[in-house]
Nucleic acid binder design. Structure first.
Lengths: 253, 253
DNA sequence: TGCTTGACTTGACCAAGGTCAAGGAGCAAC
DNA sequence: GTTGCTCCTTGACCTTGGTCAAGTCAAGCA
């Protein structure tokens, strides 16, 4: 029904059920996220060194990629699929701290243990760099470390932008901001117009925005009936009035 | 009245009014924050190189240190005083994204322009590293870049922890978590028992916790009458029952 | 074709925290 | 002392978004 799917599509082989499969890497030259991942910042020589320690890993939809407190053994680039990272309170309350898409870097190359959880929202392929070799490589390749520093600052800025959203924006502004971010990210990955696929469900959106599923649903309905967006089957959303959405996101009076 | 002040104290010279004074650095060997700043990660040689580009700058209480969108010309270590960093919405709503104390690194060594605002909460002394020389030094000294990467990850983790607070914690849990963080940071700076000084006012606490000043005040009063803390003159707080405060912060049932 | 299931939507009601307003404490100027 | 000021506290009331419950819709299956 929804024509334009991004993340969930094209798992031609059957790797989603018995996942955690580790395999040798495909050719970097044909990598889907070559222009988006950390590789793009490296020269040919550095890329080759990085490829030397990389392995491909697959995770099924809903599968935990890593857990807080565990050794940071999964660190690398999302090649295919979508990932959510989140923190938990003792009583189970959840805060999603990030949604990651192809090209994004997941996990901490610095801490020895994870500070949050990560879960596959769809069948996911990661290009993973094992801890010890990555540490060594970071020491030997300053450009690699510099690229990681640049990304850490980007992530920090986004997290602080999200603090502003969680601390000071209304429900309507939060949902509008979230959609703006999704459309922007999709655009960066080369997506033009057309509906984008939401790989996460309402509950995960709610946990990202500090709201409940009911409030998210109500605000989406409101945006839909205002003609700002169109919703196709609850997991595909089309942007109809970009300017109006941006105004709502910033807190138009 | 309040005996133990930290940040506001001991400005023996008169540099708070006509601030922005730039001066040569004091001797690093006698630096108050030597054990806390980025220097501690460097060897003697690297420290000397870093000192070579550093200058001291002073800011008066309430003075803006830098603004979002401006060139990132103030980047460095807080030597004395306290700083708040914050983001703004077009209509003036404010979210404090961090309170910085002696030893903390302020500003982005990566972006050419600031992504947030910074303001002195008390007379502040910074050890500033000018943009271009810092960029050069980062390339030449991998340990320096590594230390900045480590701190960026620490900051990111704290920001995500704060997303959890802003998105999912109750008013009581937020205030308790905030106080825990302050006491912890004070401890790290060598503070033992005794009341700690709050360099920020109620409005700034509220803007950090996504609350209003009234709610902050009510929750502080509640903690006070429960005997968890004692408040001396509204800007000094004493921890009476650490365990109970920690339980409240985590969301004790 | 109808049953079951799970995710989403919608409505009615409720409460945590926001808003508005009054009062108090501390402090500097006169 | 007292005036004025700012910041903090407290109380009364209100609003936004949460809670609870019922209804809708699509997919999978017998």
């Amino acid at each position: 029904m929804t024509s334009s799917v991004e993340a969930k599509s094209s798992d031609h082989s059957s790797q989603n059920s018995l996942s955690r499969a580790e395999s040798t890497l495909h050719d970097c030259a044909h990598c889907d996220v070559r222009a988006l991942g950390i590789c793009v910042a490296l020269g040919d020589l550095e890329q080759k060194r990085l490829k030397g320690i990389a392995t491909a890993r697959h995770f099924g939809e809903g599968e935990t990629i890593f857990s807080a407190e565990d050794p940071a053994d999964v660190v690398g680039t999302v090649v295919r699929g979508a990932v959510k990272t989140y923190k938990l309170l003792p009583d189970g309350r959840q805060q999603v701290v990030g949604f990651l898409f192809p090209g994004d870097f997941v996990g901490s190359a610095i801490f020895g243990t994870n500070r949050c959880f990560a879960e596959a929202l769809s069948p996911v392929e990661l290009c993973v760099f094992p801890y010890a070799p990555l540490q060594r490589l970071m020491k030997e390749l300053p450009v690699l470390e510099h690229e990681l520093l640049r990304r850490a600052h980007d992530d920090l800025d986004l997290a602080q932008e999200w603090m502003l959203l969680l601390g000071r924006k209304t429900a309507q502004e939060r949902v509008a901001t979230f959609l703006c971010l999704l459309f922007e990210k999709a655009k960066k990955r080369g997506h033009c117009g057309a509906p984008i696929d939401l790989p996460m469900n309402r509950s995960e959106i709610a946990d990202y925005l500090g709201l409940t599923i009911e409030t998210v649903s109500r605000q989406l309905s409101k945006l839909k009936s205002a003609g700002v967006i169109a919703i196709h089957g609850s997991h595909a959303i089309e942007l109809r009035r970009p300017n109006q959405l941006a105004e709502l996101a910033a807190g138009a009076d």
